[in-house]
């Protein structure tokens, strides 16, 4: 799954445009992620112009993220 540092996100929808799994979407005024759909491909990380996406390969649930990753 991925995490987004929302503070630095410029809400450009670049990540959702390239996500092959439809695992990110602009909802309201924030990017929303659907960890259960994420296939850990990393494309969103590469495209993000603000550099605020982190990929945690293999993690499927927020509570399994390493400390400090949220």
């Amino acid at each position: 799954m991925i995490t987004i540092k929302h503070d630095g996100c410029i809400f450009c929808v670049g990540c959702s445009s390239v996500c092959p799994a439809s695992a990110i979407e602009a909802v309201g005024t924030r990017m929303k992620t659907y960890p259960e759909k994420c296939i850990d491909c990393g494309l969103c990380v590469k495209v993000c112009p603000a550099n605020v996406i982190c990929l945690y390969k293999g993690v499927k649930d927020e509570k399994d993220l390493p400390a400090g990753a949220r």
Partner: peptide, 26 residues
Amino acid sequence: EGMESMIARELGFKTVHSLYDVDTCY
């Protein structure tokens, strides 16, 4: 829907963008 095109995908269109065919902008 513009760049995101989530519903278009659900309708069966191949609208996901490849990294080669996008420019990322600031």
